[in-house]
Design a protein around this nucleic acid. Sequence first.
DNA 1: CAAATATATTAGGCAAGCCTAACTTCTGTC
DNA 2: GACAGAAGTTAGGCTTGCCTAATATATTTG
Lengths: 160, 160
Amino acid sequence: MVATTARISPSLEDYLEGVLIVKEKKGIVRVKDLAKLLNVRASSVVEALQKLKERKLIVQQHYGYVELTPEGTNVAKTLYERHNTLTRFFHEVLGIDEKTSEEDACKIEHYLSRETFERIVKFIKFIETCPLDPPEWLSSFHYFVKHRKRPPKSRAKHPR
Amino acid sequence: MVATTARISPSLEDYLEGVLIVKEKKGIVRVKDLAKLLNVRASSVVEALQKLKERKLIVQQHYGYVELTPEGTNVAKTLYERHNTLTRFFHEVLGIDEKTSEEDACKIEHYLSRETFERIVKFIKFIETCPLDPPEWLSSFHYFVKHRKRPPKSRAKHPR
DNA sequence: CAAATATATTAGGCAAGCCTAACTTCTGTC
DNA sequence: GACAGAAGTTAGGCTTGCCTAATATATTTG
């Protein structure tokens, strides 16, 4: 009943996340699809899937499709959520272009502590619950990035 | 005259940064010090230093101390600055404890794009140039983290 | 200054994660 | 249903980065 304790490697995280992504997009998951998504050869995918099977995160019949187990689904969804949250943070908060945001999220999602990740979630929530959307300070930051100086003294958009 | 093109691996980045850190702290750099700092065996350090020598980032006499070349110094300082900036961001902006901030910075410093890194630098600069220090929104965020709700409607600390 | 100890190096091994090439199985079409 | 092409698998090799054990050099100390 106890879940596998050891965390899977960054590489395996990518494969597992990939399974979820392909599944959502195409309904079925083939070795070929994962190879394309992750830019590796099919044999590398097979090797990785073998390890994910050992950890009971996926099942796959010989020469068949790949399926996530319930636990694999949980893990994959958690990873995917991290990925998306980080992408949003880079793009929406820092104002980084979507492609770079995506790439950076992809790389660091494996390395950030749970604590820091959750704080970033809160940061986004904080911004979303601001009375003004986006809050004035964030608009100011984007102005600051664009014009290399702080915006002129604000005339609030919602004056009292 | 052209600098070595290929980027060094995350692992080598750690070793190179370690050389700078030990140098600043102790004046001289020994294999032993790096082994301790990076939690590896001396033989692993020797192996890594060999690669850094090939890339002309350090010099070392046989059985002697390690020294950074001018280029090695540049690279190491850049890495160290990334490290420190990320640590500050996690700690001062997100409010993560120092130890975790440090650890997370250590891990992701190798993976973040230059673009995103520089945007984080700007984000910190933006905060530092706010008329109020820390700016009210940031205090509100820290309140939000601590009390799990937004602070009561602000009575500005610097009313006009 | 010689022995003991500390430090650095070398040699050889291992795991992860990728690859190519050869082979097996599946699938769609005639 | 046979067979050609597509997809999956297996075998074996390579690199990185770590390790232990054995060896070489430096340094300290009696």
